[in-house]
Amino acid sequence: MRITVNVNGEDHTREVEPRHLLVRFLRDDLDLTGTHWGCDTSNCGTCVVLMDGEPVKSCTVLAVMAAGHEIRTVEGLAGTAGGDQLDPVQQGFIEEHGLQCGFCTPGMMLTGRALLDRNPDPSEQEIREAISGQLCRCTGYLNIVRSIQWAAKKQAESAAAATAAPTAAPAATLAGGQS
């Protein structure tokens, strides 16, 4: 079947078998190997990507089912704020040692991103619940929780700075007008 899937803001058209799994489509056909897989029963959550903004397990979505939908992978996390800048969630994982082997990390970060998009100030329990469909064998989860908390705080600070900046700007304009 010929399908077009929007991945990280770009349409990709490929000929695929109906049985092609989304995770393999991303990895094999688009060379987006940042999305990993770790089981066959949709338990481990290593393969989590965002589908229309929400976390889904891409080992349990057929590529044909994703046709016409928007998929976001780890490769699409950086740069949304312009340039090549890391998303606050990515930065949080570095700052708080939220990863060790790095295998579950893309899925964890995408879930963190989706959570903060809906709930900018989640509690520790809300973060734990949000990532409870994803396994990590290295970190014992605490530093993943802290990484997402770091990102939440960072975003709040940036937002505060952004709201402060526009008020400064009109003031300057006003001052300029008076002179």
Partner: peptide
């Protein structure tokens, strides 16, 4: 000290065996 390996992992640029083509 922050880990030197993290920048590639958080960008999905780690290279695991199944990524070898």
């Amino acid at each position: 000290m922050k880990r030197k390996e993290d920048p590639r992992f958080v960008r999905g640029k780690g290279r695991y065996v199944d990524d070898v083509k």
